[in-house]
Computed example of a mutant assay.
Amino acid sequence: MKNTIAILISDGFDEWAVKGSQQFFKSHKESKLVLISPKQGEFVRSWNYKDWGASYAIDEHLQEADPAMFDALIMPGGALSIDNLRTNVAVLDFVQHFIDHSKPIGTLCHGIWPLLELDCIRNKKLTSVASIKTDIIRAHGQWIDQAVVQDGFLISSRTSDDLDAFLSHFNEVLASILQE
């Protein structure tokens, strides 16, 4: 049985985080990735740190995606993408499902912002890109400067520089779900 992982993205997502995740989970065949976006149309554009990157096909539009069909959620960074996602009520409802059911949620870089909007990081240990450390502290979370931090079902990482460590840890969490 495979785990199905939703990757929530919008225009401006961190291309390396998504591309690296796709490559990692393709080689670890026990998980299937599904790119989900609230954006209308067929594609979302990535950001490669200096300019627009490649466009990626949307596997499912958020309006049609049932969060109950997914075992885990990854929200990659890309400040532009995440800033669009965290202000979208439908996105927040989708993310809330994972919180309510204690399903693994992985965040990279700015990917933690929707969790801040949902006020669910109080007293949680987390990491992120350093520029939003203050946001986490003000939301009563504990920011830790480590490659990967796990607190319950929340798994966070600083940037795509930590992607290998993040994906390995996230995969271990998913493997433990399969054994249950």
Rank of each mutant, 00 (worst) to 15 (best):
L154T: 03
S160Q: 11
A165E: 09
I121R: 07
V148G: 13
P104D: 09
P114V: 04
I132Q: 13
P114T: 08
R122W: 03
F94M: 02
S102I: 08
K125I: 02
D119L: 04
L115R: 05
L108N: 14
A165H: 08
D162W: 00
W113M: 02
T127K: 00
I112G: 06
D135I: 11
R122V: 04
D145Q: 13
D151A: 05
W143A: 09
A130G: 11
L116E: 01
Q142C: 10
D145R: 13
L85K: 06
C109F: 02
G111R: 04
W143M: 05
I112N: 03
G141A: 12
Q142K: 14
T134I: 14
L108F: 07
A139M: 06
T127E: 01
K125C: 02
A139V: 04
S81W: 04
W113K: 10
D145L: 14
A90N: 10
C120D: 03
L108G: 08
P104F: 01
T159E: 03
D83V: 12
I82E: 10
H140A: 09
I136V: 15
Q150D: 02
H140P: 06
S131K: 02
L118E: 13
K125R: 14
V95D: 11
T159I: 02
D164Y: 00
H101P: 02
S128Y: 12
D162N: 06
T159Y: 00
A90K: 15
R158A: 11
I112V: 14
T134D: 15
T107G: 06
I144M: 13
W113G: 00
N88V: 00
G152M: 09
I82D: 09
D100P: 00
I137V: 15
K124N: 00
F94Q: 01
S160T: 04
K124C: 10
A165D: 07
A90R: 13
I99M: 01
L115W: 12
A139P: 01
R86T: 06
H97T: 03
H140N: 15
S102W: 05
K103D: 12
S102H: 12
R86W: 01
A130S: 13
I99N: 10
L163R: 08
R86C: 09
V149I: 15
